[in-house]
């Protein structure tokens, strides 16, 4: 190839490909009806996370943007060209002042970011109760292959792939899995948390406005993982009551057999149930402990197995338990103090 490396054809092709790609991107930005869920929060926790995303982006941009500009200037100014007048100093390879500066700048920025991060880490810790005049509503969540089951123990109703909650009320999600680990994510209300067999995780969130919010399983769990979507419907207190009554009167109850057929791997439609077996959530959490549901030597006893369930919070009849030794409650005190600050 005798042609010069940067031939004219190449320049044109590169230009055209770039322009076409940009045009396509611009089209995509406008064609998508998509909502930037993470940047468009509808609850206090997601708002705190959005704020933190904005703050950290600005902080890092303070370093990144000038660096990128400097990079372009240097590369442009010192490229080798006949007659180049820019200074050439091949032995310029050490300068204490300069090197101190660029050890210093990132140290300062990272220090600020670290302080912000630590504050928010405690403020947004998912197991910390939200401050509210209203009593939190507890919803128990079980991830199955490949569907979500929601138990509402206060109303004794259950739903599949859809959950209805009262707006402006803190919701205390207690989560576990009866299948490979997954992750429960409603981006407009709160960041995700893993659902794992043998342990109950806690995730507080609250919807400030009525609406249907997109939720999905975020951690890969096998073949039909992509179908693990669910809706969170936030409704007014009155609508919530009406909805509960409707389920109570119109749906069938969930028996142990119904649950077991739900637990068979496969996808599922949205469903609702007027009741569910007592303590089913706790039984699933303790399923693999001695005497639990999975303990074949002990099948006959179908009662709540003996476990190390933490009885401190007997109000809900359940708590962060069992094999999860890292109790989440220890941060309550720290968390609630800073909670207000970040909730705006």
């Amino acid at each position: 190839m005798s042609k010069k490396p940067g031939s004219r054809l190449m320049k044109w092709v590169v230009l055209i490909v770039t322009v076409l790609s940009l045009a396509l991107t611009v089209w995509a930005l406008f064609a998508g009806t998509g909502n930037y869920f993470v940047l468009n929060p509808k609850g206090p926790i997601a708002e705190g996370q959005r704020d933190l995303i904005v703050i950290s982006t600005i902080l890092t941009a303070i370093v990144i943007v000038p660096t990128t500009i400097i990079a372009f200037i240097i590369v442009w100014r010192y490229r080798d060209k006949p007659g180049r007048k820019a200074k050439y100093d091949p032995d310029f390879s050490h300068n204490n002042l300069l090197e101190t500066i660029w050890w210093g700048i990132p140290i300062v920025v990272i220090f600020i970011l670290a302080v912000v991060t630590v504050r928010y880490t405690y403020a947004l810790e998912p197991s910390v109760a939200l401050k509210s005049e209203k009593k939190p509503v507890t919803i128990q969540v079980v991830s199955l292959d490949w569907k979500w089951v929601f138990f509402n123990p206060e109303e004794n109703i259950a739903t599949v792939n859809s959950v209805t909650i009262p707006e402006d009320t803190p919701i205390r999600f207690e989560l576990t899995a009866d299948a490979p680990m997954n992750s429960f994510w409603v981006p407009q209300l709160a960041g995700q948390i893993y659902t794992m067999s043998g342990m109950a995780m806690t995730l507080y969130m609250q919807a400030d406005h009525p609406g249907t919010y997109f939720g999905s399983g975020a951690n890969f769990s096998g073949e039909h993982f992509a179908d693990m979507r669910f809706d969170v419907n936030a409704v007014s207190d009155a609508d919530y009551r009406a909805w509960v009554e409707k389920i109570k009167s119109e749906s069938k109850p969930m028996t142990m057999e119904t649950y077991q057929s739900l637990a068979i791997p496969g996808t599922a439609e949205k469903q609702s149930f007027s009741s569910f077996p007592d303590n089913l959530f706790q039984q699933l959490v303790t399923k693999y402990l001695p005497g639990g549901l999975a303990d074949t030597s002990n099948r006959a006893t179908h009662t709540t197995p003996q476990t190390e369930i933490n009885e401190k919070e007997s109000e809900q009849g359940q708590s962060d338990m069992g094999t999860d030794t890292k109790s989440n409650n220890e941060h309550d005190g720290l968390g609630t103090d800073t909670q207000e600050g970040s909730n705006n």
């Binding site: 996370q49 933190l52 950290s56 890092t60 970011l113 912000v116 991060t117 880490t121 998912p126």
Partner: peptide, 14 residues
């Protein structure tokens, strides 16, 4: 660095 900000990572993760 953004991903390292733990509470924000609850939204980026996965």
């Amino acid at each position: 660095v953004l991903l390292a900000v733990a509470p924000a990572d609850f939204q980026y993760h996965n």
